[in-house]
């Protein structure tokens, strides 16, 4: 799972206009991970961010559905909406195109 997440992260970083990847894992899981210890670190600490780097693209596989989520920061030199679609299409391409068994969420969290 980490390999897939890392591979997708590398691909997304290569899309023109993408300047940053943010942690896309759901907030409850981040809270649980932080609470689980990892040395008792507080949420948002440096180590917490470093730990989540391998899963910065969230990939959740269920019985019937795979959900991929990515949160990005984009530059203001290209259309944010166009970059959003380009990131989606690149990820979909890795899985052989669109499928009803898969959702791909791309969220632009900062521009500029």
């Amino acid at each position: 799972m980490n390999d897939l997440s890392r591979r997708l992260a590398d691909l997304v970083r290569g899309v023109p206009g993408v300047v940053t990847l943010y942690d896309a894992s759901p907030l409850p899981s981040r809270i649980l991970e932080a609470a689980a210890g990892i040395g008792g670190l507080a949420l948002g600490s440096t180590a917490d961010v470093a730990k989540s780097a391998d899963n910065i693209v969230s990939v959740i596989e269920g019985d019937d559905l795979t959900a991929i989520s990515v949160s990005i920061g984009v530059s203001d030199t290209a259309s944010a909406s166009a970059v959003c679609r380009a990131v989606h299409d690149l990820i979909a391409e890795q899985f052989g195109g669109p499928s009803p068994d898969r959702t791909i969420s791309v969220r632009i969290s900062s521009i500029g």
Binding site: A80, C84, R85, I104, S105, S109, I111
Partner: peptide, 15 residues
């Protein structure tokens, strides 16, 4: 239709 694409309101306010 399976694509979930969005911008956060915060990103747009920043813009």
């Amino acid at each position: 239709p399976s694509a979930r694409l969005s911008l956060t309101e915060g990103a747009v306010r920043g813009l």
